[in-house]
Amino acid sequence: MPHSIRGLTRETLIRPLVQISLDLTNNDEALRTAAIAVEAGADWIEVGTPLVLAEGLHAVRALRKEFPNHPLIVDLKTMDGGYLEAEMMGDAGADAVIVMGRAHDATIDRVIEAGDRFGMLVMGDDLGTTDRVAEAVRLEKLGVGMVIHHIGYDHRNQHPELKLSPLTDLEAIVAATTVPVQAVGGLSIDQAVSCPGIGAPVVVFGAPLAIDGESFSAADGDLLGVLTDACSRVHAAPISYPA
């Protein structure tokens, strides 16, 4: 399949997609896990932030070479130096990069400029913002092609009694925007499978399903079997947007 996803819209998202998040710390493990995920039916491959920190452009180039037809998402979590960071990843073969909503407007603008030049989808992450709906609207107005509604790992684990979940505000965010929306942060398989029905059809699987969230290594158990079943369920899920 062609891997360019820059022009993705809600209208062209005719079936749900699965993104595997490689929050790992070395290329060998990332390549092995990605191969399992692709065999299981994953559509997109994410170079997770730990892998970006550990292996950088080497990870992007290695995954691009091994999986030439799969969209490659790089979770840079860019906060400054937006053009240079995005340019480096685009030149290495990335199809999408992630900029933080808490970055200055100027940084988001510069990442979008690099996205234009290299044909990349720019994804805006609302991690850490207090008004999630307003942040999603701001990110779309600035020009991002997808909004990531993200409840962070540290935030969730510091307050387990709150049972924090991206599902809480997801419906309102989808209703307030017109670009594709993705929900990330501690979802169970059942919750992840429900996301297309709430209007967020690009479903991410990472920790703890595919990645151990404490050690940032591949999860134990029958990863191929679990992911194959999860991918099948996501692909069969109906997509529903608010009227």
Score class of each variant (00 low, 15 high):
Arg32Lys: 15
Arg32Cys: 01
Thr33Met: 11
Ala34Thr: 07
Val38Cys: 04
Ala40Ser: 09
Ala40Gln: 04
Ala42Gln: 04
Ile45Met: 04
Ile45Arg: 00
Val47Pro: 00
Val47Trp: 01
Thr49Arg: 12
Pro50Ile: 04
Leu53Cys: 14
Ala54Leu: 11
Glu55Cys: 13
Leu57Pro: 06
Leu57Ser: 13
Ala59Cys: 10
Leu63Ile: 13
Arg64Ile: 03
Arg64Ser: 10
Arg64His: 10
Glu66Gln: 15
Phe67Ser: 00
Phe67Leu: 04
Phe67Gly: 00
His70Cys: 12
His70Lys: 15
His70Ala: 13
Ile73Gly: 02
Leu76Ile: 06
Leu76Asn: 12
Lys77Ala: 00
Thr78His: 03
Met79His: 09
Asp80Arg: 05
Gly81Tyr: 10
Gly81Leu: 10
Gly82Val: 09
Gly82Ala: 04
Tyr83Ile: 01
Leu84Glu: 14
Leu84His: 13
Ala86Glu: 01
Met88Cys: 06
Met88Gln: 07
Met89Asp: 12
Gly90Cys: 03
Gly93His: 07
Ala94Val: 04
Ala94Met: 07
Asp95His: 12
Val99Ile: 11
Ala103Pro: 11
His104Glu: 14
His104Ile: 01
Asp105Gln: 12
Ile108Met: 07
Asp109Gly: 02
Asp116His: 12
Asp116Glu: 12
Val122Arg: 04
Val122Asp: 08
Val122Leu: 08
Asp126Met: 02
Leu127Arg: 14
Thr130Phe: 11
Glu135His: 02
Val137Cys: 00
Glu140Ser: 05
Leu142Cys: 09
Gly143Asp: 02
Gly143Asn: 02
Val144Asn: 11
Val144Gly: 05
His150Cys: 03
His150Pro: 08
His155Ser: 11
Arg156Asn: 07
Gln158Asp: 15
His159Ala: 10
Glu161Ile: 00
